[in-house]
Computed example of a mutant assay.
Amino acid sequence: MSADLRVIVQTADIDVGAELARLEALGGGAVASFTGVVRGGGGLTALELEHHPGLTEAMMRKIAGEAARRWPLLGVTAIHRHGRLLPGQRIVLAAAASPHRAAALEATSFLIDWLKTGAPFWKKEYFGDGSSRWVEARADDDAAAARWGAQG
């Protein structure tokens, strides 16, 4: 089965409804998705994401392709934003369409776990007191990605 891969890195907001409708139109029996939003709290006022344009898209495309290789998917969507985002704004959409729900759900979980750890984004948090800090990799994110084994 050859899946329709849609991989985008953008500054604009993500139109989740339009993206899911596109996957539904592929004719499968299931569409699963994960939408990540910038967390608030702790005085956080903004999150800035930087990336290397060519490298980031290539790695995201590799991750999407790996999902399509592992599961019988009709379509895969991986959209990640960059730039300055505020708490509550959408940051990422990972979605998959398949004839069966289990494959769509598992592929979506794989996508977000691998995007979180494998796509080269650098995140900097800004706080109301004027301070800022780079976000470090988290061991639990690495553990989530590791449960899927190595990429092919």
Rank of each mutant, 00 (worst) to 15 (best):
S2L: 09
A3T: 06
A3F: 00
D4A: 12
R6T: 13
R6V: 10
R6I: 11
V7N: 00
Q10M: 04
Q10Y: 02
A12P: 04
D13H: 09
I14T: 02
D15W: 02
V16M: 01
E19N: 08
E19H: 14
L20I: 15
R22T: 13
L23Q: 02
E24C: 08
A25K: 12
A25G: 13
A25L: 03
L26V: 03
A30T: 02
A30E: 01
A30W: 05
A32H: 07
A32Q: 01
A32G: 09
A32C: 13
G36E: 10
G36M: 08
V37F: 14
V38A: 02
R39E: 10
G40N: 01
G40Q: 10
G43N: 12
A46D: 12
L47S: 05
L47D: 02
E48S: 13
L49W: 10
E50Q: 13
E50I: 02
E50K: 12
H51K: 08
P53F: 09
T56I: 06
E57H: 14
E57M: 07
A58M: 05
M59S: 10
R61C: 06
R61T: 15
K62Q: 15
I63Y: 01
A67S: 11
A67M: 09
A67H: 03
A68C: 00
A68N: 05
R70N: 01
P72N: 14
P72F: 04
L73W: 03
G75W: 00
G75S: 03
V76H: 00
V76F: 04
T77L: 07
T77E: 14
A78T: 08
R81K: 10
G83E: 09
L85D: 04
P87H: 09
P87M: 08
G88Y: 03
G88K: 06
Q89M: 12
Q89V: 04
Q89W: 00
Q89K: 06
Q89A: 13
Q89C: 05
R90D: 13
V92E: 06
A94L: 11
A94M: 14
A95D: 03
A95Y: 00
A95P: 00
A96C: 15
R101L: 09
A102L: 11
A103D: 15
A103Y: 05
A103E: 15
A104G: 05
A104R: 05
L105F: 15
A107Y: 00
T108A: 03
F110C: 01
W114C: 07
W114Y: 11
L115Q: 01
K116N: 00
T117N: 06
T117E: 06
T117W: 04
P120S: 09
P120M: 06
F121K: 03
F121W: 08
F121R: 01
W122M: 05
W122Q: 02
K123V: 05
K124Q: 15
E125W: 01
E125G: 07
S131C: 07
S131V: 04
R133G: 09
W134L: 09
V135H: 11
E136A: 15
A137K: 14
A137S: 14
A137F: 03
R138E: 15
A139C: 05
D140F: 12
D141T: 11
D142C: 09
A144D: 02
A144T: 01
A145L: 06
A146Y: 06
A146L: 02
R147P: 03
W148F: 15
G149I: 06
A150N: 11
Q151S: 13
Q151M: 13
Q151G: 12
G152C: 08
